[in-house]
Amino acid sequence: MPGEEPELAFDGGSPRTRKQILYQLNDRLKMEPGVVYTRFDPSRITPDTVIASINPTEFVGEAYPAPIGTLEVWWSPRAVGTDHFTIQWYEEPDSEAAIDAADVNDPTLPEAYTLSCGWHQDEHFNDLGEAHFQEEYPDGSTERYGVTFGDATPRWILSDCLRNLPNRLTVFRESLDASPQSN
């Protein structure tokens, strides 16, 4: 179907659409238990990312070893094919948060490693699927798992990821615990 569209003078990647999507994703994030605050990056006028600072225990719904999490949602709407996006979780404070470094250390992880994982949808690793979930390990290696979201709005896709994230984090931590690098 994308091949049939060129005759329309329609730019699905318009800046207004991108901003509308990010504003709606921001609204959705603010509804999620455990989200402490959200902000637009680099600015509210020309945002390309929404960032949420998260209390992981409240978000996951049970005791979680890391004291803080940050979710970064980058969205680039496309007129042809699927949107490109990243929904990235990492266990370091958002740069805007005034948190003492000492408060943030996660004793269960190898020193100098920040647990980092997330969903990517773009033109890479499409042999796995339209999108994939990526886990980043302390030794620098990555594991990727194919994911298909189907033909859904950005808000639906974000909701789906938020629903699946607690389980994804549990599985990732289990494989980290099992690996020789963790200590």
């Binding site: 994308p2 569209e5 329309l8 329609f10 699905g12 990647g13 659409t17 509308q20 999507i21 709606q24 709407p77 496309r78 007129a79 949107d83 033909d151 859904a152 709005t153 950005p154 808000r155 639906w156």
Partner: peptide, 17 residues
């Protein structure tokens, strides 16, 4: 949903979303 449209969509797709 209409504000987030990046492709021309039918009413049935919008209804679903």
């Amino acid at each position: 949903v209409a504000e987030m449209l990046t492709h021309p969509r039918s009413a049935s797709w919008v209804a679903d979303q």
